[in-house]
């Protein structure tokens, strides 16, 4: 799928929200407490709402009869543009929480940049999404501190999740030609420019949570933004897409 840079950009924004939403939806009915179950699925619904806005705009840009549903349900994994971080499996509650925290901290910075986008439609979606994401970040930060600075067991689980997911944060700050064009046109931002603010916020929260920031360097998987995904995305899509693919045009 070789579209315009704007189309690629919108797909990245939309797919991040869609795939993370689908992941969180897997917790529905299985949360560790009723209150957590509701909070996770609320977050999933917020992200799904954002995904619909981004993908509707992407469908307009694509213009080939696509709509938000064909983009969500009829693309193969290579056509998805989400970050590798958001497609990682839920694992245990600690893994889900740390994934959410790392993403929220990035999304809140990214959306803040997009508020000033020269593209009015993008700025408008960012303005709606930033309120939701600010709450997601407040919540995930709070839980990271509580569980990190909690019992020996909760701390160990969070540290293990952090060590596992940490390599995926590099991709959040790795730009490519699409990012460069969006920056040049005043539509987007330079991913690398968010790194310092992100690290500073994440370090503060992790320090309060008595967790150890994994060492810099090391394995830095990337490629999600360009459509090169881990094996996990295929399985996620199989579940998410099975109904519209088995029953094309099915309606309630």
């Amino acid at each position: 799928m070789a579209g315009s840079a704007r189309l690629e950009y919108l797909l990245r924004l939309g797919d991040n929200a869609l795939i993370l939403s689908q992941r969180l939806g897997e917790w529905c009915g299985k949360g560790p407490a009723l209150e957590e179950d509701m909070a996770l699925t609320n977050t999933a619904l917020d992200l799904l709402g954002q995904a619909r806005l981004w993908l509707s705009l992407a469908a307009e840009e694509a213009g080939d009869g696509a709509d938000e549903d064909t983009l969500a349900y009829l693309r193969d994994d290579r056509a998805f543009r989400n970050l590798l971080l958001v497609e990682q499996p839920n694992g245990g509650y600690a893994d889900t929480l740390v994934r959410q925290f790392l993403f929220d901290a990035w999304a809140s910075l990214a959306l803040r940049q997009l508020l000033g986008s020269s593209d009015a439609a993008i700025a408008a979606i960012a303005e709606k999404a930033i309120k939701e994401v600010s709450y997601h970040l407040r919540r995930s930060s709070d839980l990271v501190v509580r569980l990190g600075d909690g019992t020996a067991r909760s701390r160990a689980l969070l540290q293990a999740a952090l060590d596992t997911l940490w390599p995926y944060h590099h991709e959040l700050f790795t730009g490519d030609a699409v990012d460069a064009e969006m920056l040049a046109r005043g539509i987007g931002f330079d991913p690398a420019s968010l790194r310092d603010a992100w690290l500073s916020y994440v370090r503060d929260v992790l320090a309060e949570a008595t967790l150890t920031v994994p060492s810099a360097g090391g394995w830095a998987p990337k490629g999600g933004k360009q459509g090169l995904h881990s094996e996990h995305l295929g399985k996620l899509l199989a579940e998410m897409q099975v109904l519209p693919r088995s029953h094309p045009g099915a309606r309630w």
Binding site: L34, E35, M38, A39, N42, Y135, R138, R146
Partner: peptide, 20 residues
């Protein structure tokens, strides 16, 4: 009503359970 370990989380949980 709801369960929460402290007041801050009770507010957060209330937001998630009762103001959807």
């Amino acid at each position: 009503s709801l369960h929460a370990p402290d007041a801050t989380m009770a507010i957060n949980n209330a937001r998630d359970v009762y103001t959807r």
